[in-house]
Write a protein that binds this DNA or RNA. Structure first.
Lengths: 134, 134
DNA sequence: CATCTTATTGCAACAAATTTGCAATAAGAT
DNA sequence: ATCTTATTGCAAATTTGTTGCAATAAGATG
């Protein structure tokens, strides 16, 4: 998997540097999406500035995507690394549940088609109380 | 409708001040959701600070809700003032299309129920190219 | 393996966005 | 018309994000 990273970067002709490795591993080891400030905390070896630059790079290179979670922008690995999914977000305990729903995807493409839209990306989130909190 | 505003505020026991009136009217007169900086520009009478405070209040009071649009946080009046809808967002021309889809709502409640979630709110956006841009 | 080239880093300085404290003001109650 | 107190405007502080540049280290080359 360290292996995997190397070939990924080689393929994209990007240098595999310390901050890039650190940021990628931080993202990979987190079960939930991370905000920039969380990411900066999780990457103590790298300068703040480098984390910003790295995450920008990762977004451009389609390694990481931006997801809006509970009204904040967060980052998570793209579908290349993690199966496409959406989130249920508990507003009480803050927990996130990953969901994989065929129906959501169907609605997305139906709505896009009906409106003559060529979809590149979509966002879906449900907020509320989870089983335990309600 | 100015009438409407007054009774709304009276009901919530909030003072109807100049910044609150200005922010509300700005939101109401805009067809698309607004970012804070757009809102500040649209509210020249009120201090920047007051716009921040007002929008926070409006969110707390469920007058305004936050919507993620094209990776930015924007604000728009809640369903109390504008029929519930979602957005198609063109990444080329920046245009927004409002959509009212029964199917989306169905999927939302199905998914929530299946996961023992009691839904309070949800987010849905499709990004891509609109009819004209593709 | 040593050397070379050049992308990337760290740091410091800057700029922008957001928050806070507080005295002055003005809503709305009496 | 007066009083009480929430809210405002303003200035200062803080936090968040950006930029320029010299030093460094990836990875290419011989």
């Amino acid at each position: 998997m360290e292996r995997e990273l190397e070939s990924l970067f080689a393929q994209k002709k990007l240098r595999l540097t310390t901050p890039r490795r650190e940021v990628f591993l931080a993202m990979q080891s987190s079960k939930a999406p991370l905000s920039i400030s969380e990411l900066i905390k999780k990457c103590p070896i790298s300068e703040r500035t480098s984390v910003y630059r790295t995450i920008d790079l990762f977004v451009r290179e389609n390694i990481v995507k931006i997801v809006p979670i509970g009204w904040k922008q967060k980052y998570e690995l793209t579908d290349l690394f993690k199966k496409h999914h959406h989130h249920l977000s508990c507003t009480k305990c803050g927990n996130l549940i990953d969901i994989h729903s065929k129906n959501i995807e169907t609605v997305v493409s139906d709505v896009a088609r009906e409106n003559g839209f060529s979809e590149t990306d979509h966002t879906f989130e449900i907020r509320g109380l989870c089983r335990d909190c309600k």
